[in-house]
Every structure is written in C-alpha cells, then in structure tokens.
Amino acid sequence: MDSEPFLISFELSTITMLILGIVGIGISYFLAFKRSIIVDILEPIIMSPLVLPPTVLGFYILEIFGVSGSVGKFLNHFDLKLVFNFWGLLIGSIIYSLPFSVSPIIAGFRAIPKSLIEASYTLGKSKFHTLLKVIIPNAKYSIISALVLVFSHTIGEFGVVLMVGGDIPGKTRTASIAIFDYVQELNYKDANISALILFSIAMISLIFLQILKRLQER
C-alpha cells in the first residue's frame, strides 16, 4: 500500500485545522456576541457547507479559482494556480470544514456568562486581551472539539477534494480518494487497509470528543 495519500491527508488536515482554529475563533467572536442583521445573514452562509453537496462547492471553487475563473484569471498574471494542487485542496477543505470549526466555538463563546467579559472590561482590559485571557480559556473544550472535528472531517472529505484537487498521485490524491481508486482497480486488500485506518481515525476522534464532553460536564 502506498503511504503517500495518507501523508497528504494528514498534512492537509493538520494545516486546515490550524488555520480554521484561528479563523474559527475570529469569526465566532464576531458572530457570537453581536445581534444584527449582518450576523443573521453571515451565519447561514458560513453554515451552508453543512447541507450543500460537496459537488456544489467544488463546482464554485473551480469556477472562481480555476484558470478561466474570475479570481483564477487574475492570479494567472502572477503565475499562481489554486486548483489541482495542494492550495486548491486547502481552500476547498477550509471552506468545507468552516462550519465544523465555527459552530462549536460559537456555542462555547455564547455559553460564557456575559458578566465575565464585562468584568474584564471594568478592570480596564481591552477586547483583545479579554478574548485571549478570559473568552478563549473559558471556551477551551469547545475549541478543542472544533479542532478535532475539523481534523477528522478533513481526513474524511472526498467530493470537494476530488473535484478541486483532481486525484493527482503524490500531490492531491488523499487517502479517501486512494480508497476509491483501489476499489476501481479491484485492489481490495489495499482498499481494506486504508478504509480500516480511516475508520479508526474517525472512531478515535469521536471517542476523544466523548471524553471531552465528560470532562466539560465535571
């Protein structure tokens, strides 16, 4: 069995997780404490990958970032390509997993009593200082859950990655696509091993989340 698809999957998931950790906290902070029409518009947009078919996202990403897409055409001038390479996978994964980051973190932020944040303000601390020292530490279980969810969801991603990455061995063939290829080749042995590994990763992360939930309840 080829280990390269797994290396690519792990690399992709780790980078996606780190980026979405920061981006997720930023977006959640913006959305969690505001009550405005902007929030009511933005929240459904951010959550849309939860219900959209991956092919819809893949299609739009290709349309926008592909060589003949609007952004793609612009990037061509700088000899930058964002589809059919690792960057394409990353963009697709970030968009596709965004709700898995934002949703738990928003819930965590909203569960923090408002008076804690106000207490920090009355003690003369800035919003950013309060975010770092009060909000994030008190939402740490939600943030860790978000990171685990993003990691395992990115590992398991198929449709967007296939459309935007293009199944190029050693570049964009992730573990989940490799299984698809193994099955087509009738290579059931490698398909089996790969599937078992992905299954284990999924189970381990779900068990971890369960433990986390118990810790939080204590």
């Binding site: 009593p113 804690l116 920090s120 003369g124």
Partner: peptide
C-alpha cells in the same frame, strides 16, 4: 469607554474568572 473609566465593579453574580485561581483573579488587573 468602560475600559478607560477607573472603576471597580462588583457584579451580583461575582463574575470571577473560572480559569484563574483566586490570586490570579485579583492580580488580573
């Protein structure tokens, strides 16, 4: 803004930071 008013506020629900010890809470500011 609230940050620039030199106040000490005791909230009805105390609003102690759960992630900090008693000493850290008081030393926060």
């Amino acid at each position: 803004p609230v940050q620039n008013r030199s106040i000490g506020f005791v909230f009805q629900d105390f609003a102690l930071f759960p992630n900090m010890s008693v000493l850290e809470n008081i030393a926060y500011a």
